[in-house]
Amino acid sequence: MICFDNVSKRYSTGLEALKRISFELSVGEMAFLTGPSGAGKSTLLKLLMLMERPSSGALLINGKNLMRLPRSAIPNYRRQVGVVFQNHQLLSDRTVFENVALPLQISGYPPSETGRRVRAALDGVGLLDKESHYPLTLSGGQQQRVGIARAVVHKPKILLADEPTGNLDPVLSAEIMALFRRFQDVGVTVLIATHDLSLIHNLDHRIIHLADGMLISDGGSASGA
């Protein structure tokens, strides 16, 4: 599903954020991306969201090279990827329902179907009763869950999350992680960037460890990154 082949990214400032990264993620796999801040986690996710283009190497999604994707094809590609942002990036002037409906509206779903799907997604994150609230009236954990509902409402094949438990307490973090596992269970490929090692320590998942733009280790959590 996701294949990094010798991918490097050098910013115009000269900073080399990623150095010859190679790894593969198969369909329905869930992996954590860890490493200290500045290790290149965010850059790696940005490459997957096509917010940045690799400087060299090949980045294949479903066998297609993202490097060769023309500008006009970017929107369509992004519709197949769900993204959970660190600061959830909800639009504060719209209700929870409208926020979650946004990807459907953008992809051109008929309005009749939108309501059903949005409620299914909100039900999935346990916030069905909050659909007419505004994001700022919700707690941090609830906002993050709205962000997750928005990321999965259009049933993407790939789910990316950037520090999804960033400023949440351990109980809420565990809840969010459980949510991600449920998506993985239905075949979504999930990649989660986090520096919260205690959170993933006792989860049996693949961990891709980055440091200084290089891939240090790639394996199970038992090895203890």
Partner: peptide, 10 residues
Amino acid sequence: RNSRLTDLPM
């Protein structure tokens, strides 16, 4: 890791 799930219908 969860390879049992990869052949579930998408």
